[in-house]
């Protein structure tokens, strides 16, 4: 191999650089997030597992149905009906995004820009 003394260290540096997240988060496993669940309501719109896996999908479908197809009522698997609105429905129970949404989002270092537009309840309180 030509230039092995340059190529091999180069590859090592490359691999180290692209695995930075692994090294930086090493040993952080005990810090599994515990989002604060609403107190008054025990059950979300769908099952806990479904919500955990597909809440973003559900919200996206909600938007498409409500805004683009004029359908504002969602019927959950248990037959209960909900008015489609993040601020007027979800926030009735989840009234603190910092204690709920951000807990997991921060843990997986994902930063959805929902709160750029949708007014989180705690923000609304401070604003008034």
């Amino acid at each position: 191999m030509y230039n092995a003394n340059k190529v091999i260290p180069g590859i090592i540096i490359f691999i180290l650089f692209f695995t930075i997240p692994i090294w930086l988060n090493f040993g952080r496993l005990e810090a599994i997030p515990k989002p604060e669940l609403p107190k008054k309501e025990k059950k979300c719109i769908e099952s806990k597992e479904y919500m955990r896996a597909y809440h973003m999908k559900l919200l996206d479908d909600w938007r498409k149905k409500a805004i683009r197809e004029n359908k504002y009522i969602y019927t959950a698997s248990d037959g209960k009906k909900y008015f489609i609105s993040l601020q007027r429905t979800c926030f009735k129970c989840h009234n603190d995004t910092e204690k709920f949404c951000d807990k997991c989002h921060n843990f997986v270092i994902t930063h959805p820009d929902c709160w750029d537009c949708h007014i989180a309840p705690e923000v609304a309180k401070k604003w008034q």
């Binding site: 896996a53 597909y54 999908k57 559900l58 479908d61 149905k65 197809e69 004029n70 359908k71 504002y72 009522i73 969602y74 019927t75 959950a76 008015f83 489609i84």
Partner: peptide, 18 residues
């Protein structure tokens, strides 16, 4: 495949009071 997880069309409706 994940689309298959999405809810069927009938799950969405227009509110009666609209």
């Amino acid at each position: 495949l994940t689309r298959g997880e999405a809810k069927a069309e009938e799950e969405y409706a227009s509110p009666p009071e609209a």
